[in-house]
C-alpha cells in the first residue's frame, strides 16, 4: 500500500463566494426582514459573479459539464447562473439557521425510522454526508439518533466559509479534526467500536486516501475512509441526502446502504469498493433528480496521485 499524508493542507481552493462585509449585509437582512429579501438581493448579485468573477463560472462548470454534457454557449451560461443562484439560496438558508428561530424551518425527514432502529443497535454508524442541498440542516436535525455523534470535518474550513453554520448545535457534536493524528482514525475507530456515530463527507477527498469510481461518465476520486471504517468495525453505513424544497424548507433522506452483509469478513478492498459503489449510485441518482443541489465547486474528477491508494490485500478478520 502506498503511504501518503493525511493532511488537509493540499486542498484546492474553491472560489470564495462573498466576503465578510457581504455576509454581514445578508445577516442583517435576514435578521430584520427574513430570508425572502435576502434571496432577492442575491438575484442582483449573481450576475456580478457570472460576468466579473470568471473563477466562479469556471468552478461551477466542472460539475455542470459532467451533468449536462454538450451544453455550451448561452445555455451553459444560463444554467450556471441558475446553479449559482440555487447555491446562494442554500448559503442564505444556512445563515438563517443560526439567526432565526427553529420554528421557522420546515424539515421533512424521510428514513427517520431507519435511524431510530439503527441507533438502538450496539453497532456504530458511519453517517455519510454529502455537499448536497443543505447538509447542515440534516446534521442539525439528527436528534433521532440516540448516540453520540462525532463529525470528522474540518471545522475551521466550515466556519471560514459559512458564518453561523450549526450555530447553537455545536455542543451536541464532537468534532474530530481530519488533519489531526492519523487523520482522526484512532478516535473514529474507537467511537464506532463503542457503538457511536461518525459523520464523514462522502464527496470531499481533500488530503484523504481515495479510490477512483465512475461518476457521471468519468472516473472521480472518492475518499475511501468511510467504507474502510465500516469494513473494519462492522458499523452500519447510512447516507444522508438533503434537498432544498423552498424557503427555509428542506427534505432529508436517510438511507442505510450497508445492508445485511458482514463486511468485516470480506477482503477489505472488495468491501470498500462495493460500499463505495453503493454510495456513488445514490449520488448519481440524486444529481439526476436534483441537478442543481450538489455543490462541489472544483474539478471533482481530477485525481491527485499522491492520495491514490493501492491497498494491501487486507482480508477480513
Amino acid at each position: 500500500m502506498s503511504v501518503s499524508s493525511d493532511s488537509m493542507a493540499n486542498a484546492p481552493n474553491p472560489p470564495n463566494y462573498g466576503n465578510r462585509a457581504g455576509f454581514a449585509i445578508f445577516h442583517l437582512l435576514i435578521r430584520a426582514l427574513g430570508p425572502i429579501p435576502a434571496y432577492l438581493l442575491l438575484a442582483f448579485i449573481v450576475p456580478y459573479y457570472l460576468l466579473l468573477r470568471t473563477g466562479a463560472r469556471l468552478s461551477a462548470s466542472f460539475y455542470l459539464r459532467h451533468r449536462f454534457p454538450g451544453l455550451g454557449g448561452v445555455r451553459l451560461f444560463m444554467t450556471t447562473a441558475y446553479y449559482i443562484y440555487q447555491f446562494g439560496k442554500v448559503l442564505i438558508d444556512q445563515a438563517a439557521m443560526g439567526i432565526l428561530k427553529k420554528e421557522r424551518f420546515t424539515i421533512d425527514v424521510r428514513g427517520g425510522e431507519v435511524l431510530q432502529r439503527l441507533s438502538k443497535e450496539k453497532r456504530g454508524i458511519v453517517l455519510l454526508t454529502t455537499h448536497a442541498g443543505n447538509w447542515q440542516a440534516a446534521m442539525a436535525n439528527m436528534n433521532r439518533i440516540e448516540k453520540r455523534v462525532h463529525l470528522l470535518f474540518n471545522l475551521a474550513g466550515i466556519e471560514g466559509r459559512h458564518f453561523f453554520d450549526l450555530a447553537g448545535q455545536r455542543d451536541r457534536f464532537h468534532f474530530i479534526p481530519p488533519g489531526g493524528f492519523l487523520g482522526g482514525m484512532v478516535e473514529a475507530t474507537n467511537a464506532l467500536n463503542a457503538g457511536e456515530v461518525v459523520a464523514i463527507m462522502g464527496d470531499r477527498a481533500f488530503g484523504a486516501k481515495t479510490i477512483e469510481m465512475e461518476f457521471l461518465g468519468e472516473k472521480a476520486p472518492f475518499p475511501m475512509m468511510p467504507y474502510y471504517l465500516v469494513a473494519a468495525t462492522g458499523a452500519n453505513l447510512v447516507v444522508l441526502l438533503t434537498v432544498r424544497t423552498g424557503a427555509l424548507s428542506f427534505s432529508v433522506e436517510a438511507r442505510c446502504i450497508s445492508g445485511e452483509e458482514d463486511w468485516t469478513q470480506m477482503p477489505r478492498e472488495a468491501a470498500v469498493k462495493a460500499l463505495m459503489g453503493r454510495y456513488v449510485a445514490c449520488l448519481e441518482e440524486y444529481v439526476e433528480k436534483y441537478p442543481y443541489m450538489w455543490f462541489n465547486f472544483f474539478d471533482f474528477w481530477k485525481t491527485d496521485s499522491k492520495y491514490k491508494v493501492t491497498m494491501r490485500d487486507k482480508e477480513g478478520v
Binding site: L182, T189, N193, M225, A232, K314
Partner: peptide, 11 residues
C-alpha cells in the same frame, strides 16, 4: 504504517 493501518490496530 498509515491511517488505514491505524484503524486495523485499534480494532
Amino acid at each position: 504504517l498509515d491511517s488505514l493501518d491505524a484503524v486495523e490496530l485499534v480494532v
